[in-house]
Write a protein that binds this DNA or RNA. Structure first.
Lengths: 112, 112
DNA sequence: CTATTATTACTACAATGTAGAGTATTGGTA
DNA sequence: TACCAATACTCTACATTGTAGTAATAATAG
């Protein structure tokens, strides 16, 4: 057991994006997905910083793509979520669900 | 519209706790709820810092309780979530739900 | 009036969020 | 071959959020 920290808010989104993109998750595609799904436009630099930190913590892993790209450009770095990453994500999910329980009823009445 | 930022991870928990506690949300009770529901033990100082910041941003409001407490101790400061707070919370919720969509299937298979 | 207890305020620092400029790699083209 | 456009990643710096610890404040029992 390493010291289990909590996932930051943006970290969760990034992990989810990597999961959704399956084997096709790399800087640009992740950024695009975040834009399409939650309309969150983050700079590419910001994204890479988060990806690096997640990798340091062992929550995602990366491997370089084929050296020869289709039409120019540097090789892609593909990311996948590790078991630890999935576990951390699940814990975050469960905690949030637990906190939302019972709130919904009281909340929905007033929130319109 | 003020510049709509995103809620931090812990900020969400605190807002949810205040909602759940309805009219009874103050330092100690919030802390207790966080402990009971998600087993997260945060220092009282950390909690107040976050509450203050939420208040600055207009996401929660506070009012002092009756001066005379039941059996000693200072008057409590009760917190409630503002409309803006509920809205911010809802947005965070929706964004996360949107990101989780489609992921579940692929995720659940592997996550055990 | 003091010990006790409950609560808030202040200070400081660590972790996460975020942007922007810079560097690398490769195909096409003059 | 030299250079430019296209694509992708890296580095640096700073803002915001997360967190603890300690000091200060209040109220009451005894």
């Amino acid at each position: 057991m390493t010291k289990s920290r909590f996932l930051g808010e943006f970290e969760q989104y990034v992990i989810l994006a990597v999961l959704r993109l399956d084997q096709q998750a790399y800087g640009s595609s992740i950024r695009q997905l975040l834009h399409d799904v939650i309309h969150r436009d983050v700079s590419i630099g910001a994204l890479y910083t988060t990806l690096s930190r997640l990798e340091e913590k062992g929550l995602v892993e990366s491997k370089m793509g084929e050296a020869t790209a289709q039409r120019g450009g540097r090789a892609k770095k593909f990311f996948v979520v590790t078991g630890a990453g999935k576990q951390a994500l699940q814990q975050s999910r469960q905690a949030l669900d637990a906190m939302w329980r019972d709130v919904k009823l009281a909340f929905i009445e007033v929130a319109r």
